[in-house]
Write a protein that binds this DNA or RNA. Structure first.
Length: 293
DNA sequence: CCGCGGGCCTGAGAGC
DNA sequence: TGCTCTCAGGCCCGCG
């Protein structure tokens, strides 16, 4: 599922039941997700109070009173479900109401707030890892991540600078988490469309010879801000796996202008073009050749 | 160093 | 109905 808006939606759903609550019981129901769980994974979580729940790029980060941080990534198909205190369950074991794909419920947390939190991930590209907060900057998973696209330091000058000298396509550059951290295939397609820039454009063309931000870079940054904020407001995009923590679908997929709309009319007012699809770096790109140059 | 393609997994949908 | 094939929101790794 998860690009930045989906992960942020999940964070906002988990925050009320995690922050300030203790992880009374934790359970990993298999030996691995994308990677094997650490041998002390459960031990470092149980009994810990979650002092804060943050997000960095597509990672959720739960701060623990012990000084550890629980890093969580949803991969392609991960989702969290919150089961409220009054739902059916017993104190000792996880007897929560099972969904039909409960065989993919891999990690369970029982919180002192009374809620159970269930992590489900059919494809198991997701992962969790506990690390010491004072070792965050050495963490390989986080090292090299570029700026937060909704953060203050991400602006046209910085984007143009990061793209300077890049011979790859603008599409590939925006998917590179070292350039900007949190975009994925959907929101890159949508941001390029909103800024009327072709996904085939060479990334370096965003930078001028003077290395100053061009109008193109400004347009692109504005489009990235807008599409991410709109998608967060909509609870993310649900194509197949993404759910809000309540189980509700996100609904930003209804606002896609190009993604998954091959052969349909471009939604840019007055454009009249047809959305096309082609493959770049092994992934589908959706765009309108008429209004994206 | 850079850019690209393969691979990791399972499930949904299309086509036969 | 059921089989086979393709494709999917991410990211790491190895190759040239």
């Amino acid at each position: 599922m998860p690009e930045l808006p989906e992960v942020e939606t999940v964070r906002r759903g988990l925050q009320p039941v995690m922050e300030g609550a203790k992880i009374v019981k934790a359970e990993a129901r298999r030996a691995d997700l994308r990677f094997p769980f650490q041998p002390d994974f459960v031990a470092r979580l149980q009994g810990q109070v979650v002092t804060g729940l943050g997000r960095r790029a597509k990672y959720l980060m739960a701060d623990l009173a012990s000084g550890d941080v629980l890093l969580m990534h949803l991969g392609m198909s991960g989702s969290f479900r919150v089961i409220k205190p009054n739902d059916e369950k017993s104190p000792g074991e996880f007897h929560y109401p099972r969904g039909k794909d409960s065989s993919h419920d891999h990690v369970l947390f029982r919180m002192s707030s009374g809620a159970d939190i269930v992590f489900n991930d059919p494809r198991r590209f997701g992962y969790m890892k506990v690390i010491a907060r004072n070792a965050l900057e050495d963490e390989p998973l986080l090292r090299g991540l570029g700026p937060e696209p909704l953060g203050n330091e991400f602006d046209a000058a910085m984007l143009a600078q990061s793209c300077a000298g890049k011979k790859t396509s603008l599409k590939a550059a925006l998917l590179d988490q070292r350039v900007v951290a949190g975009l994925g295939n959907i929101y890159v397609c949508e941001a390029l469309h909103r800024s009327h820039l072709s996904p085939r454009r060479i990334a370096a063309t965003l930078a001028t010879r003077k290395e100053e931000p061009t109008d193109h870079a400004k347009r692109l940054v504005g489009a990235i801000h807008a599409v991410l904020n709109d998608a967060i407001k909509a609870g993310g995009s649900s194509l197949r796996d993404h759910r809000q923590t309540t189980g509700e679908l996100g609904y930003f997929q209804h606002s896609f202008k190009v993604y998954d709309r091959e052969g349909e009319p471009c939604k840019t007012p007055g454009c009249g073009g047809i959305v096309k699809r082609f493959t770049q770096n092994g992934r589908s790109t959706f765009w309108c050749p008429k209004c994206q140059k």
